[in-house]
């Protein structure tokens, strides 16, 4: 396996507040890394930094050996090679589902409409939504919208997929349909970085877990070890908040 993403000494500060404090880690090709941690620990910010949505104060991010320019004004096209899916779906409400999918490939990658539409339809078929191609986002349920958002990222052929709490805004019964799509992607060997609060899912999908707190990676490991035998007291406490025992 070869290294695809490499983060070195990443620091992100808002004035006095340090959100990410000297973070270093790497992701191998085909690896699924799941990041968990209490809210406010900087996990979403980390993904946003990778996608060039936040300026960083220090450190470097490499994609396939090339340094990512994280300043929006001089982006070098590397951020685009990482697809991102957001908590709030953020489909374009004024476009149909098919148009949502084909817009970026046509205007950014200058691909032919016909060819992109064929690919979009095939991808929609895979997530079970081909009947919705001419609907508008408002006509879809949250789970359906999120599946479309995943396809919208996939159709740009990203080398890495960043998923930022993609089920956090969904009703419980819709979480499954979205996570199944992600599980399938993992099986196909997609490289993914996932931020989530769904611990069961994290365990099922992850090759490696990262526990982030206070802007630092406190613990990392294989899911089995991570969930069953946490090494740090802090992670043990964190995991405990997800179990309910009647006293």
């Amino acid at each position: 396996m070869s290294e695809i993403v490499s983060v070195k000494n990443l620091c992100k500060r808002y004035d006095e507040l340090t959100v990410l404090d000297n973070i270093s880690f790497s992701v191998q090709k085909g690896e699924v890394v799941v990041i968990v941690g209490p809210s406010g620990c900087g996990k979403s910010t980390l993904l946003r930094c990778l996608n060039g949505l936040e300026e960083i104060q220090d450190g470097r991010i490499f994609l396939d050996g090339e340094k990512i320019e994280t300043n929006r004004n001089k982006t070098n096209g590397l951020c685009e090679r990482m697809g991102m899916v957001f908590q709030s779906y953020d489909l374009f409400p004024h476009k149909t589902i098919l148009q949502n999918l084909t817009l970026a490939p046509i205007i950014v990658k200058k691909r032919k409409r016909k060819e992109v539409e064929e690919e979009a339809l095939a991808l929609l078929e895979r997530v079970g939504l081909s009947s919705k191609k001419d609907s508008y986002p408002r006509q879809l349920s949250g789970g359906q919208k999120q599946r479309v958002a995943i396809v919208r990222a996939l159709i740009m052929h990203p080398e890495v997929l960043l998923l930022d709490e993609i089920t956090a805004a969904l009703d419980p019964e819709m979480v499954r349909e979205v996570l199944d799509v992600v599980l399938n992607l993992a099986r196909e060997g997609r490289t993914m970085l996932i931020v989530t609060h769904e611990m069961q899912f994290a365990r099922a999908v992850a090759d490696r877990m990262l526990f982030l707190e206070g802007g630092k990676i406190v613990e990392e490991g294989e899911p089995e070890e991570f969930f069953e035998h946490p090494k740090t007291e802090r992670l043990r406490q964190f995991l405990q908040t997800f179990t309910y025992i009647k006293e």
């Binding site: 949505l53 951020c79 685009e80 374009f92 990658k109």
Partner: peptide
């Protein structure tokens, strides 16, 4: 318009101009 619309356009690789015109 929510900021997240701008962000999702950016993360799809659109330039500032494309983002403004199309989204």
């Amino acid at each position: 318009i929510p900021v997240s619309q701008t962000e999702s356009a950016y993360s799809l690789g659109m330039s500032k101009g494309q983002m403004f015109r199309k989204v």
